[in-house]
Amino acid sequence: MATSPSIITRDVEKIASPTGNIYQSVSVISKRARQISTKMKEELNNKLSEFASTVDNLEEVFENREQIEISKFYERMPKPTSVATDEFLAGKIMFRKPDIDELSR
């Protein structure tokens, strides 16, 4: 993911232009961010489950550097909202506007 981890200013006009409405654009971005977040959480949980222990030994907690490194890696990754916004602005997110008939059902 080539997303900048720092805070940047976004052009509201660019965000609104794909949908024609800033609120619809934010809705699309938020739904994609939720997907990314869920995927990242599943990956992290799968990696950390390898270290799961039924015995809580104080020595094991302090000695597991590998588990700490995995957690730090995920903490340094760009936030899902930043990734989703970059994908949206690059035109990588597919979305559709429902017809009025679909909304009335």
Rank of each mutant, 00 (worst) to 15 (best):
V26A: 14
A33M: 12
K97Y: 04
I29E: 00
N21D: 15
T81A: 12
V83M: 05
T85G: 01
N46C: 01
K92Y: 10
D99P: 09
G91N: 12
Q67R: 04
A84F: 09
R96Q: 11
F95L: 05
E13A: 13
K79G: 01
A84D: 00
I29T: 05
A33S: 08
E42L: 08
K79C: 10
M94I: 14
E87A: 08
D101S: 15
A84C: 07
L89Y: 14
E13G: 06
F95R: 12
F88S: 01
K41E: 15
D56N: 04
D11C: 14
A84G: 06
E69I: 01
D99T: 13
M94G: 03
F62T: 11
K47R: 09
Y74M: 01
A16N: 13
L58C: 11
I29M: 06
I93K: 10
V55C: 03
K79V: 14
K41V: 13
F88E: 02
M94Q: 02
I29H: 00
Q24G: 03
A90R: 15
L89F: 08
E60K: 10
A33G: 03
E13N: 03
I15S: 04
N46H: 06
E43Y: 07
K39N: 04
S53R: 01
E69L: 06
I70C: 05
S27T: 15
A33V: 07
Q67Y: 01
E50V: 11
K47S: 03
I68V: 06
E60F: 06
V28K: 00
I100G: 00
